[in-house]
Amino acid sequence: MSKVLPVLAVVASIFTLWYAAVPFMNVKETLTGLERAGTTVVPDNPIARRDASAVALVLRNSFAIPATYAQERPRLPAPHQVAQDLWETVVLKKVTSKRSLVYHGWITLSATLLGFTIGTGAGILLAVGIVHSRAMDMSVMPWAIASQTIPILAIAPMIIVVLNSVGIQGVVPKAIISAYLSFFPVVVGMVKGLRAPDAMQLDLLKTYNASGSQGFWKLRLPASMPYLFASLKIGVAAALVGAIVAELPAGGARGLGGRMLTGSYYGQMVQIWSALVFAAVLAASLVLLIGWLQNRTLKRMGLL
């Protein structure tokens, strides 16, 4: 409970700063618009305004401040403009409409979930292989760790185009990038988890005359669960980022990444902001969902 008040204070100050920044970010475009509509603004020629600082312009044209919050195409939309756009594109539009964020969000989410499932499955399998084969451990593990330092996201456009040229389109190429991004955190976390039982526990199983597979199912796998969930949280966030970036070169302007790209082409800042907020909410709910599953699973296992 001691967290609620400070968090609220921080969030409130973020919004205050945001509102305070809006006039300064939007003042130039607003004044140009007002001048075109016949209002006198100081200074009255556009070149002088271009060279003037935003602070000076706001101070000398304080009557224009309300207008900066109601721009059609603001450089920095005010929070209520973003909220209004979100309300229109999430709630008011039909989910099948191409202008509905739910429609685009589902396109991204389906790629994310498919990729996350593939990546997690493959990651767990590889981790099991690594723990059981010394050769695999020594050959693959250094590369798995080294690959974390490489900006894997850079190859996303290539994967999309290459798969396109062999006739694979739609959700699968995006899912592959998501899978790739969620794969490595799961491998590294799962290897750590499967190795978590200490020598004493392994020895105990040996005194019970347990076989290798019994050791795996009854000791190693349960012991790895906390590590698995920790890496699943990282993996699902990475998978969402992968799906969004994968939509940038796809060109179809579908999905949250596509919304961001078209917004950036046409200078529709409000559209970018709502796509961003929607993506943030999606990421947060995915992480929270895994956190909830983690809580339940670990409680049932008696680990929490």
């Binding site: 001691s2 400070p6 968090v7 969402l240 969004i244 949250l256 990421a283």
Partner: peptide
């Protein structure tokens, strides 16, 4: 500040910031 900013920071760290 610590109690307020840390949860917000943890939340933001999980977001798709490349957006």
């Amino acid at each position: 500040l610590r109690r307020g900013l840390l949860p917000v920071g943890n939340f933001v760290a999980a977001l798709p910031i490349v957006g």
